[in-house]
Amino acid sequence: RQDLNFGQVVADVLCEFLEVAVHLILYVREVYPSGIFQKRKKYNIPVQMSCHPDLNQYIQDTLLCIKPLIEKNDAEKVVVVIVDKDHRPVERFVFEICQPPLLSISSDSLLSHVEQLLRAFILKISVCDAVLTTNPPGCSFSVLVHTRDAATRNMEKVQVMKDFPWIVADEQEVHMKEPRLVPLKSMTSDIIKMQLYVEERAQK
């Protein structure tokens, strides 16, 4: 369809991908017990996804709020931060997103091509424990959005759910001293450019 809102299409595709990616990161990095995860098929490959309703709801709510930012190309990075029991970051999975300013006409085949590219990201995440060191026990996570403009300008966009408020993150809780950079995957398509890398704290 000519009048298809490409921003929406990209946001739908990316948020669906990010949901799978967040679940998989939490599984692979053992943030939660493996017993809450179940094998499901996404992008034509098996992935581990949580079946815990509270956790699933949290991830869904987070991504629902991020979606308008992605739609307007206001989200520069979506970061899954794994923090230790003192809330200091040990790993940051950084999804750096870039959308072309003028999106060309989409088609099913184009989206199918993007899904193939996204599958490669999922495969990389599923084996990333091989290139990362073990995290300390008692880790938790949070999802951060780095906006292109000052966060306060985007607060209204992200605040789509009344009972799921957002705040400006403190630099201290996102900053990691001299992290080790582990590039995982990058892709370029007509509708999305994205790269994923991990920043890993030297001493965990």
Binding site: D54, G138, V168
Partner: peptide, 27 residues
Amino acid sequence: AGGGAHILKPLMSPPSREEILSTLPEL
């Protein structure tokens, strides 16, 4: 604005590992 002024996060934390463990038998 500094780096921190560009970063947003949910106010609420996700369920903790302990909370998840305490509800495991219900799953």
